[in-house]
Amino acid sequence: MITRISITYGTKQVLSKLQTRYPDRQLLMLDSSTSGEQLALLDVSGEESVFSSPIHYDIKLHRGTTDWQGFINFIYIDNLSPDDQKTFNSKANHFVTTDPMPDGMRSIYFMKDEKNRSNNILLSTWENSDNFSIWKRSSSFKPFNYFLSGQNNYHEASYHFYTPEEK
């Protein structure tokens, strides 16, 4: 199992050059599903980064497939008090290791930003965005609702695989 994922952002031209330069790496070009053509390159090889300005995430827990198809969502939660951090860690640990995976979820990763250890990331992959939306309204997601506030610097980023034919 890989222990780290790296991501970088840029133009199609720059990110495509990286994919071409490193064909042996698993570099996935992603497009923001909300903004359109805000591109990212996700390195899921677990190897040392080839990006000049990478953001590294250390994987603490993972369950599910390593197949990166479908819809991808990042939930970022930061700025937790020490007690809230312990609670969040417990809820994330329980969800990733014990709870049944929701319908349509392919995988879930609980990660920490390598440079900002207080930044908690839940990365999930899904068959489609509808499955993710259903999960966020389900009882399975309820333990995380407490943390979804501005005071915790909560935000999300959703992606699908970039396909030039769509543009």
Rank of each mutant, 00 (worst) to 15 (best):
M1F: 07
T3Y: 06
R4K: 12
S6C: 11
G10Y: 04
T11K: 09
L18M: 13
Q19L: 03
Q19P: 01
R21A: 11
Y22G: 02
P23M: 00
D24N: 11
R25N: 03
D31P: 01
T34K: 07
T34N: 13
S35K: 07
S35L: 14
E37V: 09
Q38D: 07
L42Q: 02
S45R: 08
G46V: 06
F51P: 08
F51T: 06
F51M: 07
I55R: 11
D58Q: 13
H62A: 15
G64W: 03
G64Q: 02
G64Y: 05
T65G: 02
T65V: 14
T66V: 14
D67V: 10
W68Y: 14
W68K: 04
W68L: 14
N73C: 11
F74W: 04
I75E: 10
Y76N: 15
L80C: 13
P82K: 09
Q85D: 12
K86I: 15
V96I: 09
D99G: 03
D99W: 05
P100W: 02
P102W: 11
M105P: 01
R106G: 10
R106N: 09
S107C: 01
F110Q: 02
M111F: 10
M111Q: 10
E114R: 10
K115I: 05
N116L: 06
R117H: 06
R117V: 07
S118E: 12
N119M: 08
N120W: 01
N120E: 04
N120Y: 03
I121L: 13
L122T: 01
L123Y: 00
S124D: 11
T125G: 03
E127C: 07
N128D: 15
N128S: 15
N131D: 15
K136T: 14
S138L: 02
S139Q: 10
S140H: 08
F147S: 05
S149L: 10
Q151A: 06
N152K: 09
N152Q: 12
E156I: 09
E156N: 06
E156P: 00
E156W: 00
Y159I: 05
H160V: 14
F161A: 05
F161W: 11
T163W: 01
E165T: 13
E166K: 14
K167I: 10
